[in-house]
Each structure stands twice: as C-alpha cells, then as structure tokens.
Amino acid sequence: MSELLHLDLLKEERVLLAFSGGVDSTALFHLLLEHNITFDIAHVNYHTRESSDAEEQSAIALAQKYNLQYYIHSCRLGGVNFEHRAREERYKFFGYLMKKHSYRYLLTAHQLNDRLEWLMMQMCRGSGLPEMLGIRSHDRRDDIEILRPLLEWDRDSIEAYLHTHNIHHHIDESNADERYTRNFFRHRYSAPMMRDYRDAIRRSFRYLEEDNESLIKPMDFLSAEELSYAHNPHTFRSLLYGIDRFFKSRGILLTQHDKEALKKGGEHIIARRFALSIEKKYTFIAPYEHTVVMDKGFREKCRALKIGVKLRGYLYGAPRAFEVIRRLKDDLTPLRFD
C-alpha cells in the first residue's frame, strides 16, 4: 500500500476535496483525517440515480460529523454527452469555490486503476505520451491547481482499507455497465492486469511522468480582453499539446484533422468559433469574427505587423488586445489610422 502523494503541500495550504461518496473519495476523506490534513468538501448531485439524494445527505452528515465545511451543487443535465457536460459543470462549481474561499488545491480521488484505464483508452485512439498521461498527480485545469493524492493506490488496496476500517461508502451501480467505454476497459483489461502487475504498473507510471516532464514544456496562455496568447515552446509536440489543453479547458476537442492541420503552422479556424494563429514566436487565439468591416488604416497596420487575417475582425473592436499584439511584435510607434 502506498502513502498519500504530496503530503507536504497538503499540510501547508487550504484544500478542497471533490467528494462523491463513492469508494475512492470516501477513502481519501478518511486518509486525510488520519494525516491531520485540514480540508473541506464539495459534492455535486446530478440526480441521475435513485441513490443520488441519499449520497448528498451522506456527504452532508459526514462533513458535519467532523466539523468540515461542505458545499453542495444540484443540477440536472439532459441531452447527449452527459459525461463531458457533467465534468464541465462540476469544474465550474469547483473553480467558483476555489476562488471565493481561497482554496489553494482541489483534491480528486483518481487512483492507479483510473490511470491505467485512461492510458489504454488513449492508446486505442492513437494518442501520444502527454495524452496517455492525462491523469497526473499534480495538474492544472484553467485556474484550478489539482492534486491527486491517491494516484499510486490501486482499487483493491482502497477497498481493503475501507473494509479493514469498517468505513461506509456508496456504490455507483453504473460502474458495472459496460456500455460506458471506461467500464468496458476496466472489466475486460485493466482490472486483470492490475491484479497481476500492480507494482510494475505503478513504477512504469512514475518513469513515464518523469519522461513526459522532460519532453513536454508547459505553454502558459495569458489574456487581453478575449485574446489569448502564449510564447511558443521549443518543440512542436509541446506546442500542439498546449493548444489542445487550451481548447479542452473550454469544452472543445480538437479533431485529428485539426491536429494534422496545425502541424503546418499559420492560421486556422477551430470549431467555427475561434481564430488561431501560430507565428514564429507566439500563438494567438481569439473569437472568429469574419463579418466585421474594417477601415483601410487598420487593415494596412495589420498587414505591416503581419497579423493573421482571421484575427483581424476581432482585433478591430478590441484595442487593448491589438495593443498587446503590437508590443509583442516590438512595434512601439503611436497608433495612427487614416
């Protein structure tokens, strides 16, 4: 059995636990108590199962028992692609809480089996190393800094911990439904592998994460009005990964066609909503506004600065964003449009 990861960080800062009441988050809840970590909990009720309300009440009762602050979000998400929209909904809720109450880290209860299942699914989609390691022990999503202390615990060890300490938890009956891709991989492949090769799998993920950190450099986007921009990393792989994460954080998944097109650099339209321009030093992303009528002076200034055509419609009505691009291109002359 492994120790919790990042205990030093957990003991120094205010943390918020994303708590479902299931096996993994319940185990993490009690392990945090054992290690005298100060934390509060956030629970999302999607009302998708008969037990949803009971799980909410259990979360409240558990928080009250240990004098913790609890936050509950209730929502009903109809339509298709529920898993994606549920993820967006809860991280929006978590982000609001993190900012309002000054929490430094969000804790999620992802564990080693989750990591293996994700890697297998990504391999079957033809992904590269960064995508296969999408579940990291220390990560960031938009402005949320995430820690995953259980990431070296496997599911059998977690269940054994709960059983040994006689800790009540809820079971999500949908986990048995193989119509969900993750469940299919879990039951057919990852669970048997984890039982036979747990320690080797744990070590492999440590090595892979170290290798990934040496290969992929972060791409930090800044913003001015609705313009986002970042200094380009040294490798194209880091560039593509940074752009992919930028759009994923906004609920947009790049297609394989998008990714192939990005290899050529230059300008692109993403999801019919965003203009993206990859230049030598910087990458710029802005809303795509192609119906704007611009005056001649502005067009000439854009041409002189070699600003991408697809960005210009937005920049015409965003003077602060335009000024940022001018300065990034080392043009410090006063603005004059004829």
Rank of each mutant, 00 (worst) to 15 (best):
G126V: 06
K11L: 12
D330Q: 14
L240E: 13
A59P: 04
L16W: 00
L119C: 13
H47K: 14
L335V: 15
G317K: 04
S214A: 15
R87T: 12
Y66I: 11
S58V: 05
I144D: 09
L151Y: 01
P192T: 10
H101G: 02
L147C: 13
D143T: 11
G313E: 09
V23R: 00
F247E: 05
A27H: 01
M194V: 09
A224I: 07
I243S: 11
R85Q: 10
P287H: 01
G317Q: 07
F94R: 01
H110V: 02
A286D: 02
I278N: 04
Q64T: 06
H231L: 15
S2Y: 08
E173Y: 05
I243A: 10
E83G: 09
H165E: 11
M1Y: 08
H165D: 09
G78C: 07
K259S: 10
R272D: 15
L227I: 12
F184A: 11
N67W: 03
F337G: 09
F322M: 07
D114I: 01
G297I: 10
F93K: 03
G242W: 00
L33P: 09
T235I: 10
Q57T: 12
R115M: 13
R273E: 15
I171S: 09
E131S: 12
Q122H: 09
G242I: 00
S137R: 02
I252K: 13
P218R: 09
W118R: 03
G95R: 00
L9D: 05
D211C: 12
F39D: 01
D177R: 03
E12N: 10
